[in-house]
Design a protein around this nucleic acid. Structure first.
Lengths: 329, 329
DNA sequence: TTGAAAGCGCTAACAT
DNA sequence: ATGTTAGCGCTTTCAA
């Protein structure tokens, strides 16, 4: 910028004014400055601008894995909403590790982001509470966090309960649960398992722990889980998959085993991905309230950034609802 | 930082040394500084650090839409590779618009990113050439760009040709092309259409333009494209879908029309998404060389960042290969 | 309408 | 082992 100023025979201040389109610059001066800018190929240095301004116009979205469709689809929605407020969404991954999640928070506090949306999976609630409460952070995700941060969650227990209840009501008695963890911690695995168990209790149907296959959340994991049940000759007449991705893997395994869906085995997933409606048969799933989640997250973060009275941390649970399609009777 | 220094009775330089874990600090001093940091809740300001260092340790990945599985899966691969070099990948979207793409380049040149991986869809090649050539930018994507930037592309023509040739060899004579654009510009739509046409010419089978349905690349678009052919009673015995996502939409439409795949209609997609192998029937597709793409992109960008001799811009075409699964005979 | 000065928070280089 | 100086590139404030 100093170069441009020298070349145009003005002060850096005038260059700054031109670059930022501020009004009080003479037309002739402006021309000269613009010419110098072009000639020298000058570019603003945002790092310096941010250092001065104390803000970046960027909101971070930190998720466990970039390739998980649930987060990719959420990111698209959030990008739409934030764009309307002149903010850019950038997405990064935490690797679902404590370290990655802390890094993300650190990065944000360190002012590369004006605000951060953090999907919490592995971080220790205790560690969370040591962090600066009034950081512009909105937590999302599965786990109930006894924290003083804003937290928008989906109704994991309610959704899983509804899915399971539907399967039980339609006659299923041995519902395999893939990816859940009975009596597990209050994370996604544990919460959805709680819903599964609750529905069983309410229907007076006993839970068989042998039907609970723990696994992670890739396609192959869903496939392997079904294979493992079949290989051990554990019979089941329905599948509650913890995510739609796992459900897709499961559907493939069922097809390979020549089990008919939904005639022999019903399947319900969780997430209601865009893909769910297009599978053959189309996948029944729990819609975790995508639009409401995105809207709530945006509203909370904007409230932080608005910088008005720091309305105390809020915890919001977005209702889930069952979407019945072709994999259920 | 000045506060911490004052509180600990040292200079800011010493604080900086402690924060950065540099060796030449006395143990007692270090203790005092750390105590002051904790007491004051001090956080490094990365904006200032970057201003000084002239780098951020961040590589941007700018893609048309965050929710497209192809890019989400590519992002995951790139994140792995760059992480090994101490660089963070952050993903943002351009909205597939000229403006968004230019913004992404601008942002990068403006030094928020050390480097940028840009998926070019809509930008005008002429505009590209006005940009600073030695910016650490690697272009990816479909289109052949007569530009002086590094460019890693997949083999759109070759892949489409191979897919179409296989369908023709297996007896198909009326292959619907969904999402392509015969005689279109040299973008993804046009290039893959060229491969489609080439295979027809080589097999001596005429191309019927009525079989080419143009559309965008969401699930519903693939669905609607098939519906449109059926509604107009345009017969076809195979489908070449421009992307796997479109293919999934098409498969659903075929199922709704009670057409059997692959007995009545064969289907081949393009992208070889993770999902392809798990669909029922599993989707035959063109694998555009995911790992090679990611490796090439990483290598080119690291070469820029290495800052050694600026090896001239390279254009690399990664070979594609046909993966046959259940939707083909 | 334009400019000079000061400083955002950090660190490399050079003292001490 | 610790401190001083200077400056990264920008913008706010105040003066001309």
């Amino acid at each position: 910028m100093a170069d441009v100023a020298r070349s145009a025979g003005v002060s850096t201040m005038t260059v700054s004014n031109v670059v930022n389109g501020r009004p009080r610059v003479g037309a002739a001066t402006r021309e000269r400055v613009l010419a110098a800018i072009t000639a020298l190929g000058y570019q603003v240095n945002l790092a310096a601008r941010h250092l001065r301004a104390g803000r970046t116009g960027v909101v971070g979205l930190a998720v466990p894995e970039l390739e998980r469709p649930y987060f990719a689809q959420l990111a698209g929605r959030l990008a739409d909403l934030f764009e309307a407020h002149g903010l850019r969404i950038v997405m990064e991954r935490t690797g679902a590790s404590r370290e990655g999640e802390l890094n993300a928070v650190a990065f944000s506090r360190l002012r590369m982001y004006d605000g951060l949306i953090l999907s919490v999976v592995d971080i220790d609630p205790g560690e969370l509470s040591r962090l600066n409460t009034d950081a512009p952070v909105v937590m999302i995700g599965e786990r109930a966090l006894p924290s003083r941060f804003d937290h928008v969650m989906m109704d994991n227990v309610g959704g899983a309960r509804e899915a399971t209840a539907h399967l039980l009501a339609s006659g299923a008695r041995r519902i395999a649960m893939i990816g859940g963890e009975l009596d597990g911690p209050a994370n996604m695995q544990g919460l959805r398992a709680t819903g599964y168990a609750t529905a069983h209790r309410e229907a007076g149907v006993p839970v068989d722990p042998a039907l609970n296959v723990q696994c992670s959340f890739r396609l192959q994991d869903g496939y392997d889980a079904i294979r493992s049940l079949l290989d051990r000759s554990i019979s089941f007449d329905a599948v509650f998959a913890l995510t739609d991705v796992v459900a897709m893997g499961a559907l493939r395994a069922l097809a390979d085993a020549e089990l008919r869906v939904p005639a022999d085995v019903q399947v319900i997933g969780f997430d209601d991905l865009d893909e769910a409606a297009y599978l053959v048969p189309s996948l029944s799933s729990i819609n975790p309230g995508h639009d409401e989640m995105a809207a709530a997250i945006t509203a909370r973060l904007l409230a932080h950034l608005g910088g008005d009275e720091p309305v105390g941390p809020q915890e919001l649970i977005v209702p889930a609802r069952l979407v019945l399609r072709g994999t259920t009777r």
